[in-house]
Design a protein around this nucleic acid. Structure first.
Lengths: 335, 335
DNA sequence: CTGAAAGCGCTTACAG
DNA sequence: CTGAAAGCGCTTACAG
């Protein structure tokens, strides 16, 4: 047995030697098999099989200047609406030979910057962000890189590059309209400190503020996105002296906590307190009463982001304007 | 202005030229700054800043034979107990310069194999699997690769390499004991078709089967891991003619569906039907009655996997025996 | 249908 | 403290 080869993974040279041809032909078998004679092809495949050859993708990327990587930046993958968007993107990329490199930054600006640099360092061919990228320095870095970028889950006048989302302001306003129509006048908003939550609150305020006698409060120190945080949020609001008719939570998970806290206090929903959420998550449909919510087209945003990217990477012109996928108000018994 | 450089990302040569030194010194500033004179270091940093240089990690990996990547194989990141393990791993790897490359195979053996090949193709320095890697061909491939592997969430006699988990069989048995002690005799198990669920059922059966008059049924075609699937599971069991005292669900999410279905049918829990889950998830604590469950040390498994890997990669000898982190039976009002 | 040469952007000894 | 040379494992034109 020949053991002259140094330790380490099998190289394309080893396969070539075994098949009795050159490395370049092995490379062709892998990437343009039609250009190789059937017999040669078979011998190469046999050698690959026998040696357990797995091409070095770093070397391949370096030589071809194609990393095959799409970076995906997510505030937190633990939020199931975001993982839906990631799934939609993966679906769209399934047959393109592009792989997804997931970066979860846990809402930390430092982690976001570090992950973005790592993605550019891996020479990602495109970057998809769940949410806008806010930091001006990062925006400049991405623009300078020339890498296609798709921002999602929001709309903006000055996208870095491509964008597919919906108006969080309009979503907040839609919920505000609904609550007003149902004659709720004393309304609270419970959401995070992120920019999307802020936009939803702004939309809500735009609709509520002009109404005579209506009040609007906001609670944004809610900790994580959990049932417990939702319970604590409603508890904090109810323990204030203000009158309260309805609460709009920034997620169905929080709103589920609101439903449970109301039940624990013996409050009838929606008669004594109306509750609404966002995301159209399963938990909101399962609890009683089922939750009024805003349905976000999370999967579709990911899918369309993937489509826009593949077209752009294929050299097609992709319109730069932001794509608005909208949202749906889903009215159920909780309001 | 000098525009002689070809388009494309800034290279280390460009930085070197701008700083008036050689590429090798730029590389040193990045990796062993102590070996470079302070003045030179400052000039290099200035040049990096001015040009927006981001090192090509593929080239770096190829030259250094260190990819800096740890591949993480997960059945589905949507299951929050698995994402806990991933988080624990990330925590352990935070200051090591190693990055996590997440591969979610959606319980598909084909996707699992493809992701594993991609990880080896990227020359991952180590691989962590949530769950055992079952396919003998994959096990052989990994052993042959020489890459450190940590399997988690289970124990086995013949790990590919390292292992940190707990006995799913013992966990099932522990729940069985608890249910017997509480005088439940007609028990059902609702879980997935995966090997961990099978082991839990085997443990349950080991304890239940010898008991005179006791019965045990299993439902394993439950679809996804959702509240709705849990409801449907309990509904299917209740619509059978058999007597049923208690149901052990393979996840608290499923068990939550069981609680809701029981409530919808006006069944008192645990008086008419006892319900238990697994994972100690928030939803199980939030619903009423709160759920008896098995607490799995998901985060700790990830953290310890990361520690074992970094020690192994640092050249330390790491005992090959499987580490058992155990589990806890958490008894609440639902049983 | 196949191959020799050059090069992708880094880092590794080695030398001074 | 710094650099010239060689090489990591591939692929890209180019040639035949």
């Amino acid at each position: 047995m020949d053991t002259s080869r140094k330790p380490g993974p099998v190289r394309i040279q080893d396969v070539a030697a075994k098949a009795g041809i050159s490395a370049i032909t092995v490379s062709r078998v892998l990437h343009q098999p039609a250009q190789v004679a059937a017999g040669t092809r078979a011998r190469v495949h046999a050698a690959i099989e026998a040696l357990g050859y797995i091409p070095d993708l770093a070397a391949s990327a370096l030589a071809s200047r194609r990393s095959g990587i799409v970076g995906v930046l997510v505030p937190t993958i633990a939020n199931s609406v975001f993982s839906e968007t990631v799934a939609g993107l993966s679906d769209a990329l399934a047959d393109t030979g592009l792989q997804t490199l997931l970066g979860d930054y846990g809402y930390s600006a430092d982690r976001e910057a570090a992950l973005l640099r790592a993605m550019l360092g891996r020479r990602a061919e495109a970057i998809v962000a769940v949410g806008l990228i806010r930091d001006p320095a990062l925006r400049r870095m991405l623009r300078a890189s020339g890498v296609p970028v798709v921002e999602t889950w929001d709309l903006a006048d000055d996208p870095i590059d491509l964008m597919v989302g919906f108006s969080n302001e309009a979503a907040g306003a839609a919920m505000g309209h609904h609550l007003l129509v149902r004659h709720y006048r004393h309304i609270a908003f419970v959401g995070g400190a992120d920019e999307r939550a802020a936009a939803r609150f702004a939309g809500l305020r735009r609709v509520i503020a002009p109404v005579h006698g209506a009040t609007l409060t906001r609670l944004d120190r809610i900790g994580d996105l959990s049932i417990e945080a939702g319970r604590a949020g409603l508890a904090a609001l109810l323990d204030r002296p203000h009158r309260l008719d309805a609460v709009f939570f920034a997620s169905d998970v929080l709103a589920a906590g609101g439903l449970l806290e109301a039940a624990a206090r013996g409050l009838s929903v929606p008669r004594q307190i109306a509750i609404a959420g966002l995301g159209d998550l399963e938990i909101g449909r399962a609890l009683s009463p089922p939750l009024t919510t805003l349905r976000i087209h999370a999967h579709e945003m990911g899918r369309r982001a993937g489509e826009m990217l593949t077209r752009r990477l294929a050299g097609e012109a992709v319109p730069g304007a932001a794509v608005d996928v909208g949202f749906e108000l889903v009215v159920r018994a909780s309001t």
